[in-house]
Amino acid sequence: MDPDPRGGRGSPGPGRVSAMAGLLPLPAQPAGTPWPTSDWTSGDLPGHVDRSRLEAHLAHGLKDFDETHAVVVVQGGRLLVERYGPEHGPDATCLSWSMAKSLTHALFGIAVGDGLLDIQAPAPVPEWRTPGDPRGAINTDQLLRMSSGLKFDEVYEPGKASDTIEMMWGSGKANVAHYAASQPLAHPPGTFFSYSSGTTNILCRILSDALGRRGADFGDFMRERLFEPLGMRTPIPKFDPAGTFIGSSFCFASARDFARFGLLYLRDGVWDGRRLLPEGWVDYARTPTFQQAGVTDGRYGAHWWLDLGGPGSFSANGHEGQFTVVAPDLDLVAVRHGRTSTEKKDAVKAWVGDLVGLFRG
């Protein structure tokens, strides 16, 4: 059973949701540890962490995956590890690629908490309103879980048909959500998992419509409700000409700011005593989605991937090796940015998982 993340009477609190879904509890900010709204407080490595192994692992990561721009590890709310590649540092903005999908999940949660959206209702998509259109049965939960059934070829290889490339740089670039929403059904809604950047851009337009905000005005919403409360000062979101946030792929930010975002999810959507995401929304993100046999990229929740940093962890993953990993059992967030070739994508993903594992001793 999926938790009801809509809030209000009758929805389970976070403890009940975690118990129902078999999720690890999310740790609270340790007493006496400042929230990093203004700046990060540094900390010492735990005694059980093998420092020589960690340093060797970091050196390998900085050297052997084409370009590594940043590596940051936060544990117990304190900054323990920070390394940067050439021409990068604490304030440098880094690629997000699909880590922006998890930012979209947070923005959607804010609107759900405000009572503007119901994820179990049919998705309000203009292209699907013709009577008898089977796409009209798609609900927003299925979009968040990449289970809408829409055809969309998520391909990045030159010479191969790619809806992703056509949407963002070809015929769909003027209105990315319209391009994605115009695709036909390939499977009945809710029966087939298919990771799709088009799905996220449809969600971003749904969110814009619910808020009545587009382009720079939508950017103000992002800053007012998410970035500024966390102390995220570097994010640069990108919008298409129709004013839709390209939440599939484009929100540049520093590694420290992505660590702040990861810490928000580690703290169950609460920041310095203020609830930013509705109760149950983080647990909803990390509750597994049905996936048919043969899916090879790993388990998925709702706009977050699962298990990269070990059982119970969840992560925002992006093209070319962008990762923000949340590990509740370790009270840890790990961030890696870079530009790593497709040939090395599995190796850098494993490297990030091993980095988290070093903190288990």
Rank of each mutant, 00 (worst) to 15 (best):
A121C: 06
S341D: 12
T234K: 04
L306D: 03
S11I: 12
F359P: 06
S148T: 09
S341R: 12
D4Q: 07
K238H: 15
A137E: 15
R267Y: 08
S52T: 15
K349N: 10
G212V: 13
P90W: 01
D66F: 05
F108A: 14
P14W: 06
R256S: 08
R9K: 14
G15D: 15
A31F: 06
T244P: 10
S18W: 13
P311N: 04
R286D: 05
D297N: 11
P241N: 00
D297V: 14
L117M: 10
R233F: 13
R205F: 06
G109T: 01
F250Y: 15
S197W: 03
P36H: 07
F258T: 11
Y179Q: 01
G269K: 03
L80P: 06
L332Y: 07
Q75S: 14
F258H: 12
E127I: 00
A123S: 05
G76A: 08
G273A: 05
G215T: 02
E87P: 02
C94W: 01
G149E: 02
V112S: 05
R275Q: 09
H57M: 09
H69K: 11
S96I: 01
P126M: 03
G318F: 01
D153V: 15
V155F: 05
Y284E: 10
S42G: 15
V112G: 01
L308C: 01
F218V: 08
T130L: 13
V125Q: 02
L54C: 09
G243W: 12
A161D: 13
D257Y: 09
G190W: 03
D50I: 10
Q29M: 15
S52V: 15
F221W: 13
Q291H: 08
D272M: 07
P189A: 07
M20S: 14
S182Q: 04
D66E: 11
M20V: 14
Y195I: 00
L143G: 06
V282M: 03
G10I: 04
G136C: 03
F193Q: 07
N317Y: 02
P14D: 14
S96T: 04
W128H: 04
G61L: 10
L143F: 15
V326I: 12
P14K: 07
E343K: 13
V270Q: 02
A28Q: 11
G22M: 00
P158I: 00
L107S: 05
M1F: 12
